[in-house]
């Protein structure tokens, strides 16, 4: 089963993504900040990480860098709702650092699902 790790400091978003992706047949794990995310990533095989970019403790950008350093193969989707410098800038940095897809909050779920399917398909 394809395993997805969701990292977001917003509890409601984590719960929603878990319900949304489970319904589509994915196995979902949740982390509420970058540190938790890295710990969970180290413990279990992960095919795709969907991470927020503006979070307390460890920022999403830092998380993307660390994930990419740990595993060149893992697929990463970065999502941002903006912050001090606006969502575009964060997403551009995330792309530079190796996130395959980026989305601005609020996300179009059809597009998100399309990206998840594409990145987790055996051809990807």
């Amino acid at each position: 089963m394809t395993r997805i790790l969701v990292i977001d400091d917003d509890v409601q978003i984590c719960n929603m993504l878990e319900r949304f992706l489970s319904r589509k047949g994915y196995e979902v794990d949740i982390a509420y900040d970058g540190n938790q995310g890295i710990t969970k990533f180290d413990k279990a095989r992960t095919d795709l990480v969907i991470t927020d970019l503006v979070m307390p403790e460890k920022e999403g950008i830092e998380t993307v860098m660390e994930l990419r350093a740990k595993s060149p193969a893992v697929k990463i989707i970065a999502i941002s709702g903006g912050g001090r410098v606006g969502p575009e800038s964060y997403l551009e940095i995330a792309r530079e650092l190796g996130a395959q897809r980026t989305f601005e909050k609020p996300v179009d779920f059809e597009e998100l699902l399309g990206a998840v399917e594409e990145l987790t398909s055996p051809k990807a």
Partner: peptide
């Protein structure tokens, strides 16, 4: 930026 981030989070969850 902070206000936009907070509201985007809320809308993201609700629209999901």
């Amino acid at each position: 930026g902070g206000i936009a981030h907070e509201f985007n989070n809320i809308l993201y969850a609700m629209s999901g």
